[in-house]
Write a protein that binds this DNA or RNA. Sequence first.
DNA 1: TCCGCTATGCGTACAGTGTGCGCATCGAAG
DNA 2: CTTCGATGCGCACACTGTACGCATAGCGGA
Lengths: 245, 245
Amino acid sequence: MSRSKTTDKNPIPSVWAREQRRADQPALSREAIVREAIAMLDADGIEALSMRKLGARLNAGATSLYRHVATKDELMELAVDEVAAEIHVPPAGGPDWRAAVTEAAGSFRTTALRHPWLTLVLGQAGLAYLGPNYMTFSERLAALFTAAGFPEPSRAIDAVFSYVIGMSTTEAAWLTTVARAGETESEFVARLLPTARQVSAGYDHLAAAEATTAAQAVDPARLRDDKFAYGLDVVLDGLALRLPK
Amino acid sequence: MSRSKTTDKNPIPSVWAREQRRADQPALSREAIVREAIAMLDADGIEALSMRKLGARLNAGATSLYRHVATKDELMELAVDEVAAEIHVPPAGGPDWRAAVTEAAGSFRTTALRHPWLTLVLGQAGLAYLGPNYMTFSERLAALFTAAGFPEPSRAIDAVFSYVIGMSTTEAAWLTTVARAGETESEFVARLLPTARQVSAGYDHLAAAEATTAAQAVDPARLRDDKFAYGLDVVLDGLALRLPK
DNA sequence: TCCGCTATGCGTACAGTGTGCGCATCGAAG
DNA sequence: CTTCGATGCGCACACTGTACGCATAGCGGA
């Protein structure tokens, strides 16, 4: 098998035996890199993304990526900001602020569950890097809560979205575990049930809670949806009390 | 400089030139390993913990640790459960459930801020591994909310602690960033302010929010405490509405 | 006192990781 | 045609988690 790379050890390097640098591939660019990174993160999880694998997927060497991205951390920040664009926040000033906030919160959640690595990166980086998409997300939230009449909109936003982030993080971690097991959520739950029962046997109230949960043998995804909606309603009720009448 | 290790390449290995296996050190044990790992995590952050460094700190080789711990992930789970013991949940049945829940939530938060890697690991592992300390934490919470009269205590717990986890995660990430900069929180805020102002200049509502925040030039830690308490009160108000009278 | 046996420590090795450096090559500008 | 900046890439370094097998220490029984 003959190779024709420039830096082969033994053969005499010859100019004409050299490959054209790929004439078909759409070339490396920051956008392409970020897009492909997101695809890999979504498909195989956060620990499966390495610069070498990402390079290979782009028909490029690992270190070529560093021409377009300073560091892997920066790449992650770019990825976060990219998916932040998927979060939908209704325009401010509508008649029903609760519906609008519910929509925004739900959109955040579905985005976080579609990209389960999102919450991990948020927890690591904080919001040190403030990308444009994340900024407009925040801006729209601020507009929404201001129009709703909250005197201190940032406090209200923090209350709602701390809840949303916390719940989404927990759900994303759960879904990642399920995915790693290569099963559907129902299968995984079924397989986990005996263990859960056994472990919680020594704890009165946990056993009780587990019993009532297991009683309603419904679709686990539906159950998570309900749980999220319940908690969100709790927070919004609490906030509604603080709206000046 | 002479070395006397067994497996030196050149010198003839001789039995008497061998070191006694340290007679003073208190020996390796799972407890000691976990304790030292927590110390390193607290001191230098999650990415500074490696099996080799941890081994060195215990006067042991890296791979010796694997006699007591199956894998690094397992070690992290053990560390999480260890610090879970620090979270204080008041006994159930007291006269003031709100005060009790506030105490438990605050205890979780301070624990999470004392060990800023906690939320990261929680976000990664989910709650797949259910250590004994975490179990009794959950059990006590269940007891507390049941005694308070909630018909579905687990939903109430999820609502409150999703908020608590979300806020703690954000705060921990922030504190980690500050710590990495090697400054106090106030210094860091001061240095960040011009940038923040500039970035949010293009966004009406963010600029407004930033202005009101900057106006109250108080201790940032105090501000975080207030923010946490505010959101927690919101959630508890919402929950109180759901208590059967 | 001696003999195995098991539990424990550790050196080596392997397959990865992020990324700094310098060279090769390209397209465009002068 | 020459020159130059931008881009890709091979190599190398320091580091990671951990599998494997050997060396040893302490101990229970003969």
